[in-house]
Design a protein around this nucleic acid. Structure first.
Lengths: 221, 221
DNA sequence: TATCATTTTTACCGTTTGGTCAAATCTTCT
DNA sequence: AGAAGATTTGACCAAACGGTAAAAATGATA
């Protein structure tokens, strides 16, 4: 893949933006997020995005030079949202507090930004053609940093011995599942299409799983 | 969406298959799985699938009448693989044994069938256009059944009070994560593209999480 | 080996898609 | 008001795509 999000960020020619420019760019990005997140990159068409933005296709291309540039712009915005909850983990707090609030932040993020979460999932599933570099550098570095904090708790006997990175994977997967697989969740629970009332129960489940003990003592394998 | 997997299964005209027919159909399905799972439905092209099957496009269309039919054939095969581990959960065993071995089966499934897992993830992310009916009926029914078993353990005090369906969601998400998000996992762990050596550590993590206690007593929030 | 059904290929078609271009229209600012 | 720049539109294009038709080649079978 030619461009990555990090490259794209430096390519900006920096020119004062007009009011119309700002308005239309956000309209386009909002529409594109809707379409990309539910159709994937290849399933999304410029016509559809333009239609969702209530705009003609050539006009859309007046603001973004091609389809990929819109996609990259979305991914760039997304990464901040994705990283924010992780950044807040602090070594100063108690393990249960820090892990618990991290899970809550991630779950809130899934609820507040399901489209962004699905966009991210699509990108990873496709082999991370645009954000591969981000994953290897920025994300890895932050994970290394936070894993060290978790490892400190493990060494202090406050956390069960485990690979801290895999603990993060477990938090990511369980929380993101409610956004990415929401269709399956709803179908299994027998809920109607728009219903996201399962988030409260999800929060309880994850508290039990990560902060409590699932299998009662004396009944282990 | 016009066809669903359940409809397609009954459409078969039932005619004796030749050797070449069997060989080429499996060649096509194998190639299509590869392409669909890494490009998604819309990103996959018939030319690419035909190329991967070392076959001309018209020849491919001699065996499957269109792109969607190949996709549906793959999904149909997939659903058995997906359900198999869940079907084995029994109310006769001890909670820790049953849950533990279910997790192991699901994790093994992710390792053995990563392409199938990603195909499934793509389908769900796209809103389950083909398997929506399956999710609402067959899967829901099986989940209801197994959830009752888990609820029995909860009522018997062998399992922490929680929504059994959400417990299943947690198992699905954590285990499938290693197939669906393998690119991210590898990048964060600093592994090379083909490396799947993380599965052993993943198994340990999930055992700790689901069967043990993560946060040490006395350090809860 | 001759026959018939099956399989494969070549050439092609209509549509969709990402994208361009130049003219027309609207804003902004003097 | 009117010039200058910004925005929008309609007409269009080449490539890619899913799919078709018919002839050619191959395989099975008697």
């Amino acid at each position: 893949m030619a461009d990555t999000v990090t490259e794209a960020a430096t390519t900006t020619p920096a020119r004062a933006k007009t009011r119309i420019q700002r308005e239309n760019e956000t309209r386009i990005l909002r529409a594109a997020l809707e379409v990309f997140s539910e159709k994937g990159f290849h399933g999304a068409t410029l016509d559809r995005i333009a239609g969702a933005a209530d705009m003609s296709k050539p006009n859309l291309l007046y603001y973004f030079k091609n389809k990929e540039e819109i996609h990259i712009a979305l991914l760039t915005d997304l990464l901040d949202i994705w990283l924010a909850p992780l950044r807040e983990i602090s070594g100063d707090g108690r393990p249960a507090d820090e892990i618990g609030s991290y899970i809550r932040r991630k779950l809130d993020s899934s609820r507040a930004f399901p489209r962004e979460s699905r966009l991210f999932a699509n990108e990873i599933l496709a082999g991370a053609p645009h954000i591969g570099d981000f994953l290897q550098t920025e994300l890895k570095q932050l994970v290394d940093e936070k894993a060290a904090i978790l490892q400190g708790w493990i060494d202090a006997g406050q956390l069960a011995p485990c690979d801290p990175r895999h603990l993060l994977f477990a938090i990511w997967s369980t929380t993101q599942h409610y956004a990415d697989f929401s269709v399956q969740v709803r179908h299994v629970l027998g809920l109607t299409p728009g219903d996201v009332s399962y988030y409260d129960e999800a929060a309880r489940m994850l508290d039990t799983l990560f902060l409590g003990r699932l299998v009662a003592p004396g009944t282990e394998g």
